[in-house]
Design a protein around this nucleic acid. Structure first.
Lengths: 222, 222
DNA sequence: CGTTGATTTGATTAGATTCAACATATGTGG
DNA sequence: CCACATATGTTGAATCTAATCAAATCAACG
């Protein structure tokens, strides 16, 4: 666990990005860096959360499992996103697990230290509040989607979301690089890989999307 | 719209409850009170949110609608709960609607004023952060439930949640007073009134619950 | 190539929705 | 207080969607 001397990691994060230099320096001293290999667990539900995590590079999936061993992926996080924040100001068990999707470089800040910093910085706490509020809003969107939409609608919504997050604009549409296997993607929308596969085929037959290999999908214009 | 002279309304709210007297006084001056009749809309999605709301008495349901006109109830709020907080620090449209369930007395605080107060009070912003974080956690619980559980499990979870929120302990179990019609309850767990009705009957046949009239359910011990 | 893992497609089944009928409250005016 | 009308809740039968299980393709890699 090396200390994170380059401050890219901190500046990369929207909620920290425009703090004054003094605060940034303080933060940098608190930040540790760790590498995780594909599939490695960053933390596990039921543990006590001791850090807040920031993704310097790579992807992380946050998921929950139930007694039956089924998992549901709450969110897929990328460079600059932070997670583990649910334990701030609480002595609580983590309610989700975090796992590296591909190799990742993660920065971590001890929860206690960050709490101190937040308490002493109105602007930081304000930014955090705003970030978590927006997180809550997105989560409520998903809730609505799961409750009201059928598999096809959820599939389309997933594609549009991925396009918005990291789609590449082409002359004939938006190209998406799928970050997960069919199974993982299906899991993101609360369905099975088979159903997702069928819905993708349907969408392709209808001329709405075009699959290019297994890892790329083009959402066509109009 | 009367000013809310009795400060019960503010003190009732956990996030405000143990602020110092000076802050409480300030807050009291900001708070307005309004009555809403059963079914009356408090605000509507797509509007610009200008207030934060606190329930002094009564119930409020927060829901979202889609284009097809279907609605999904995000949460059911009671005395002491606050809502409308998603617009804090954002110039944003509301993404849900709020409706009075039964007659309600609601306190409102202008968003701008509350933001100022939050900025000047680290403890308040800390409490708010903590409240919204816990809200997020609960929302993620629901997401997991919707994604992984079948109608019967969701029904049972709903009952347990209601019991936790406002159940009355009896010698033979916990008595729940149902706050909504079957339709509303079904909506809370993303299913239909018919399915909920069937699942309740099943649970009763299995001896797990006992329906007492239409508005009360006893969850039996063991 | 041949093996392995991922994806797609097919056939069957299970669970939930829908539509319809019936039953049970709730409310109103006579 | 009753009779009727309206709301709400329950149950049944048909239908449909998605899950499951199984088989067939496809892709990646030594």
């Amino acid at each position: 666990m090396a200390s994170c001397n380059h401050d890219s990691c901190v500046r990369k994060v929207p909620i920290f990005s425009d703090l004054d230099n003094e605060k940034i320096t303080k933060l940098n001293n608190l930040v540790k860096n760790r590498e995780f290999k594909n599939g490695e667990l960053i933390y596990m539900e039921e543990q006590i959360g001791e850090n807040i995590y920031i993704i310097e590079s790579g992807l992380v999936k946050l998921y929950r499992s139930n007694e039956a061993g089924n998992q549901y992926i709450l969110r897929l996080l990328k460079e600059g996103d932070f997670f583990g924040e649910l334990v701030l100001f609480k002595e609580e068990k983590l309610s989700s697990s975090a796992e590296a999707v591909g190799d990742c470089s993660i920065c971590l800040i001890a929860k206690d230290e960050l709490e101190k910093l937040i308490k002493s910085s109105p602007e930081l706490s304000h930014k955090l509040l705003s970030a978590i509020t927006s997180r809550l809003n997105k989560t409520e969107n998903k809730l609505q989607s799961l409750a009201l939409e059928d598999a096809k609608e959820k599939t389309m919504r997933l594609l549009l979301e991925l396009a918005k997050e990291s789609g590449i604009k082409k002359e004939n549409g938006i190209l998406i690089n799928l970050p997960l296997s069919r199974d993982g993607l299906a899991n993101l929308i609360g369905t099975t890989q088979e159903t997702l596969s069928r819905k993708l085929s349907e969408l392709q037959n209808e001329g709405i999307i075009s699959m290019q290999g297994q890892k790329e999908i083009l959402i066509k214009n109009d």
